[in-house]
Design a protein around this nucleic acid. Structure first.
Lengths: 229, 229
DNA sequence: CCACCATGATTAAATTTTTAATGTTTTGGT
DNA sequence: ACCAAAACATTAAAAATTTAATCATGGTGG
């Protein structure tokens, strides 16, 4: 677990920030930030804790996990670097609504909320751009919600596979870091449903799976399943 | 349908805004705004349209309605005045993700997006406060999502009844403006499920219904149903 | 190196939820 | 006030989904 400032990296965040704030202001972020490494399964931000930092995902993939009574988990979304995390209750005194957990090895930059809030307050353009990023995350969560509400099992599983391909791995072939159980928590169905559906799709040559290696072979068909629901 | 500026009203919006921006800047909003009245069922912002305005709900109740293929509707949320609407894709070039429809007579103030965006860009504190309002709406939508994902029929129906009581009508007794079908679209189940469940609860003395008049008689029990799912 | 545990896979039974069919009541427009 | 349309209500059958039971496999730690 390494500790240090941001400036050692030529980060997406730095580039973004310097379009709106001065080098001097960015130094304030830099000096109050900490860089950490997380292994698969480690909790980055814990549900119920008081948020004091905004997390920036420098590399890796994380899941937003909501734990309800009786060890029941729901994965709200899965995102890959580069990404600002914790935008949901960013600058809220409220406790974290969900945990953020590493799905594969991650580098995280923790930024002091108060420093960032102060910079936003003094720079409207910077605030607006962060607002737009949060809006975009909100928009994606609306799509999840709609998929869940309107589609059944197969449509939902198709949706999360397409989501992972398009928004996380940026490729039709990828090394899936998630277990079937996690896919089920993401698609909001039982692990059996995921297993059965994926097996079926493999025999229908829509996808291929070898171990963790995953490939969408018939994108059109998968999108059709998503549309039909 | 009346047309005019905002300043005729001593609005929540005006009070909020003047904490952060000058009277002169507020005049810019005022001069480019339009006030409209909508009757029950009328569409305020239409799904798929290009957003050019941010809507402020001055009075009344609206639903966020997503229409999917085959006339299937999902109600994402229901909100009452005073409230900023359209925060989801506020300042986005994207088309509206959903329609906003009056559930009962509403007064709406349409504010030019570009004017508001310009004021935010020049006033970080104003931008931050609008960011926080959008965050709060996001948070509520997360709760909807989680309810939908984790609970079945009865838990979900309990959740929307509690939501309406707490967040829309602010009372355990209210004159419900929604039909059973709309309740079903909100709880994501069939109208039959809503009717059956509400009837059952009435015989169990958890609620009473006489026409549109609705009363929660056993709040503890209803909350327990929500918890158990 | 072997036992054990997590993961993946398959099936049948139980449960939940939707669909369809039907009738009654309420509401809104003329 | 009357009529048609919408909303409300109930039931049974059909479909979807979860639960439970069972087993194979592969990686990990003692």
């Amino acid at each position: 677990m390494s500790i240090g400032g941001i400036s050692q990296y030529n980060t997406w965040l730095k580039k973004l920030s310097l379009q709106f704030i001065s080098e001097k202001d960015f130094d304030r972020i830099d000096k109050t930030s900490v860089t950490l490494k997380f292994k698969k399964g480690e909790v980055i931000l814990k549900q119920g804790n008081q948020p004091t930092h905004v997390a920036f995902l420098q590399s890796g993939i994380v899941k937003f996990n909501f734990e309800s009574e009786g060890d029941k988990n729901t994965i709200l979304t899965i995102v890959s670097a580069p990404r600002i995390l914790g935008g949901a209750n960013l600058f809220y005194k409220d406790n974290n609504l969900f945990s953020i957990i590493a799905v594969e090895e991650c580098e995280i930059i923790l930024i002091d909320s108060d420093v960032l809030l102060d910079l936003m307050s003094n720079n409207g353009k910077f605030a607006v751009v962060l607002y737009q990023i949060a809006s975009d995350m909100f928009k994606k969560s609306i799509f999840n919600f709609i998929s869940l509400a309107n589609k059944q099992k197969e449509g939902r599983i198709a949706d999360i596979i397409l989501y992972l391909s398009e928004n996380v791995y940026h490729n039709a072939e990828f090394n899936l870091a998630l277990t079937r159980k996690e896919l089920a928590e993401f698609a909001c169905c039982s692990a059996e449903n995921v297993i059965m559906t994926l097996s079926k799709w493999q025999t229908e040559k829509i996808i291929t799976m070898t171990g963790k290696q995953f490939a969408i072979k018939n994108m059109e068909k998968l999108k059709q399943i998503s549309r039909v629901g």
